[in-house]
Design a binder for these strands. Structure first.
Length: 329
DNA sequence: GGTAGACCTGGACGC
DNA sequence: GCGTCCAGGTCTACC
């Protein structure tokens, strides 16, 4: 099979930096704790979906080895590298992570700093909308169904003679989701009332009214991005702040019921949820433009204290246990 | 500018 | 078993 190599920052650790945010557990992403590889299908051009397995064999800072399901053209190769770099935040240098550790030294030892995200801005927006007002296992199910129902199918030949071919799916493309009927999403993907909002989002991307390049441009003022996100269907204060962090803007906190749980059980705050939210907000304000990472890795450390290293979580078992009721115990 | 009430779905909990 | 509540919120309609 064709392979590609991708250099990484000096401190990059695939197992740690991939398994750093819940989206690594969402379809079509598949982290295999056994082989410590990330695999999924990517849409990189007109040649059809490409399966990719990402491995880091020679330790921290070594190059990634990408094994592809088919040969790719030059333009596809560039796009593929761009998408993998986005997912794993290869754009964040060791120095940039060091700067964060300077502000919050608690994560220096583990090296946590990069946060996993999607290969595209579009997928991040859709995934965030599917995480609202629902428990985590529901988000997992919705993403699985979206891929299987609306995503493009990729069939890989059986590894052994007589074995069954492997069927994989990509994440729904903008154009495909824009053409999907809300009723289909509701019935087959179980997205509930999110149906029309998801289709409308895809249509905004398709028409160019939402331009990913503008949102991703470091030169675009933060306040303008935030304002534009709030205009999107299905995106409120929580989702907007979360998409901001996915864009690498860590100054805002996506406060939700999980923040309240964290405030109570870990930080020891008492009072009404509104009061606790306020205190959580104040607690992380001193971390300034790094606030979200300080907040998130505190939560992540709590999850790992309950279930072990995130890189050992299985998508089908451990990955599904993060419900409010279980976390509160 | 602030706040009830509705909203899909499915897990958790009480009876 | 069945009803109720609510989750990594958002939107609309009111005040």
């Amino acid at each position: 099979l064709p392979t590609l190599t991708l250099p990484t920052p000096a401190d990059f650790d695939l197992a740690r930096d991939c398994c750093s945010y819940g989206y690594f557990l969402l379809w079509p992403n598949f982290w295999d704790p056994g082989t410590r590889t990330l695999s999924r299908v990517l849409d990189v051009g007109k040649g059809g979906p490409v399966g990719v397995v990402i491995a880091q064999r020679d330790g921290v800072g070594s190059a990634l080895r990408l094994t592809l399901s088919r040969a790719v053209l030059t333009a596809e190769r560039a796009e593929l590298k761009r998408q993998v770099s986005r997912m794993l935040r290869l754009d964040e240098s060791a120095e940039a992570i060091g700067e964060f550790h300077g502000v919050d030294p608690r994560w220096k030892r583990s090296g946590y700093g990069r946060l996993f995200r999607s290969p595209t801005f579009f997928e991040d927006v859709i995934k965030t909308v599917t995480s609202c007002n629902i428990q985590w296992p529901g988000t997992i199910e919705m993403n699985r169904r979206l891929c299987q129902v609306v995503g493009e199918k990729l069939v890989l030949p059986a590894r052994r003679k007589g074995g069954t071919p492997l069927e994989l799916h990509s994440f729904p493309s903008v154009s495909r989701l824009a053409r999907t009927r809300p009723a289909t999403l509701r019935a087959r993907c179980r997205v509930g009332y999110r149906d029309a909002r998801l289709v409308e989002l895809a249509r905004l991307f398709r028409s160019g009214k939402v331009d990913p390049a503008w949102f991703e441009d470091p030169a675009t003022p933060e306040a303008e991005i935030h304002e534009a996100l709030l205009e999107l269907p299905g995106v409120g204060p929580y989702a907007a702040a979360n998409i901001m962090q996915l864009l690498g803007r860590y100054g805002r906190l996506p406060l939700d019921t999980e923040s309240v749980r964290h405030g109570k059980t870990v930080l020891g705050f008492a009072g009404t949820s509104a009061q606790i939210m306020k205190r959580v907000h104040g607690h992380f304000a001193p971390f300034g433009e790094h606030a979200f990472r300080s907040y998130w890795f505190e939560i992540w450390a709590y999850y790992e204290s309950k279930h072990g290293k995130a890189s050992t979580w299985e998508r089908e078992t451990t990955g599904r246990v993060f419900t409010a009721a279980l976390l509160a115990k």
